[in-house]
């Protein structure tokens, strides 16, 4: 996978999500990457794709999401492109620290995890599409 690029198109369905995560893990597995890198890549895919599928569209139709991977020995860049309504994850307010369980809300933690545990997150809007690029360091420095 190193110094290589992958591009695939997935459907905005549960099976599309699970199939994509399985494909990515099949790419990662032979590389013997540190546990943290594999964990964070999985987290990025699950949280970003779940968010797009659940909240990205105003209709109930099945849409396509383009996923592009680019990796060298140090880093993986993951690009997600969808035609949902404009949404910049970096502009959304992270949930405030909860003072108590009773006052807290269970949701809204996925994007927080991605922005804090990935090494870079960039958003742009092009041609009516959301394009989110997430960088994950594959090796400890």
């Amino acid at each position: 996978m190193m110094n290589e690029r992958y591009h695939f198109t997935m459907k905005t369905t549960r099976d599309g999500l699970l199939d994509t995560i399985n494909r990515v893990n099949a790419l990662l597995e032979p590389r013997q990457l540190p546990n943290r890198a594999v964990y964070v890549v999985n987290l990025v895919f699950e949280e970003i794709l779940t968010n797009i599928i659940k909240y990205g569209f105003d209709d109930d139709a099945v849409h396509d999401i383009e996923v592009r991977l680019e990796a060298d020995s140090e880093q993986m860049l993951i690009e997600f492109e969808d035609d949902g309504r404009e949404f910049d994850p970096l502009s959304s307010s992270p949930p405030l620290p909860d003072e108590s369980l009773l006052a807290g809300e269970p949701g809204g933690r996925g994007l927080l995890l991605v922005t804090k545990m990935a090494n870079s997150v960039k958003y742009r809007r092009e041609n009516e599409k959301n394009i989110l690029t997430v960088g994950v360091r594959l090796r400890e420095i």
């Binding site: 999985n42 699950e46 949280e47 779940t50 369980l101 269970p106 949701g107 933690r109 996925g110």
Partner: peptide
Amino acid sequence: YLASLGIRLLF
């Protein structure tokens, strides 16, 4: 492995 759906369940 734990993602936000699991956190939601615990919470």
